[in-house]
Write a protein that binds this DNA or RNA. Sequence first.
DNA 1: CCACCTTTGAAGCTC
DNA 2: GAGCTTCAAAGGTGG
Length: 587
Amino acid sequence: MPQLNGGGGDELGANDEMISFKDEGEQEEKTAESVSAERDLDDVKSSLVNESENNSSSSDSEPTERRPPPRSDAESYEKARECFNEALRRQQDGGGLFKSPHYPGYPFLMLPDLASPYLPNGALSPTAPQYLQMKWPLLDVPSSAALKDSRSPTPGHLSNKVPVVQHAHMHPLTPLITYSNDHFPPATPPAHLSPEILDPKTGIPRTPHPSELSPYYPLSPGAVGQIPHPLGWLVPQQAQPMYSIPPGGFRHPYPALAMNASMSSLVSSRFPPHVVPHHPHSLHQTGIPHPAIVSPAIKQEPNGELSPAAHTKSPGPAKKEEEKKPHIKKPLNAFMLYMKEMRAKVVAECTLKESAAINQILGRRWHSLSREEQAKYYELARKERQLHSQLYPGWSARDNYGKRKKRKRDNKADSAAEDYSARNKKPCVQYLPQEKMIDSPASSHGSMLDSPATPSAALASPAAPAPTHSEQAQPLSLTTKPERHHPHFSLISKPSSSSSSSSSASTSSSSSSSSTSSSSSSHPSISLAISSSGSHSTPSLLSRPNPFTSLHPSLLSPPSPFHQAALHSHHALFQTQPLSLVTKSAD
DNA sequence: CCACCTTTGAAGCTC
DNA sequence: GAGCTTCAAAGGTGG
């Protein structure tokens, strides 16, 4: 695996990590140096220092909320940290890391780059290759050999339309959905309607099957079993896909085959096993069966292949029937899609095995993603939802309620926050803070700005709520973490709020995270954002997240190549940041 | 063996 | 309409 990430793979993670760890003195320096002697180093350090201080303080300040992680956890996190550092080193050494011409040290800064690859018409520019070279790290993931092959065909050419492919850490997904920007104008047509996809092999444009658009769902009632999903086994990673197949069925569900691994992973991941009938590998290569469609209780039915249609298929006793009914899962949201994609990469980079820890990392990374990047996932998610709704018109999320067996609710209720906090999270806390610190400043604020809703809304989905101020203001991350980073704020909202302002308040977001997050975490981010804005001049280091995230919605919003092109210059972007920040703060 | 942890986001439910 | 709850993925962990 060394090489796996070794090359360009790490960019994302490594960077992330780099940043994240900055808080620690030594690491911080290392990272900074490694980062590349950015001129901004000083700034970063200073920021880090502050963060570190905050951090420490935070720990103090929030002791009540979170206790020190259990030893084991601590160790694991420590490990993770090391892992990150390692990744960092690799990047630096290996040189595989993607470096933006503009921001050498900061791989993440891709936005501008992204734009470049495309021609005005949205087609991939010949010059794009440079980006193309950088496959998504994910691809490099261990078991991905297969993936590599699959993607090898020509990721780049996959479709001219798919910009994503080019970018290293981009959205492998795009190919899937034809992300291309041009395709999702605000009022994007239903996913299935999306523009034609170039046939990977032939290069001939063809209309995509719904399945292609989103492979994730279980077969549609009518379509049912017709299609085996190739990717399902093709893709190494977690694989079982869940999506459905188009009524027409598809041979090749996805151009994906040709597509790059990441995408394929995504697709495959979701393709329901049943979709892929009895393929010898129906199980994911890893051997992990995917419950995708089937309800947990049922697990995979013998004929699990049956798709949703299945439910209809055997009219048995009502109860049994219900139980048997394949469980149509909720469509994955943007973050879930992102997680699916990136998880393998993170795992590869780090020794961490625990999903909880990994998820935390992914969460941070998610926040650190630029708006555009996030927007892609939002768009993808939106399309999936559309497809899902089309496939299962009658389906409602509520159908799945209770299927999971009541979980925490009980515990939480019973044990209350105390237990809750006590049990696990601590570890995370410590862990997070470090990484987060880095992110937080940049990303966090960015994230806030970027709030899920915003990006998506702004960029793509018409459906998505308009990016109102409030939305923008919403801090994604409310989830506690931010607080830690910035202890000052950490305390209950009010005090801190002064600085950051009320805006975030709204943010509190419904997110489940429950209490912990409660605090005004968002505020901190805002404050940071502001500060950062001031520094926008020095986007290089810190910034990655900031710059883009902070971008003004209007600017970012258009995912289309055109827009990207417009955005071309970072400077412009950076400059824009302040505005965005302002808006938020205002909110 | 099952629930939990953890993340964000969407949708449903409650008031 | 606001706020809260549940579920989606994932895999180690603990009871």
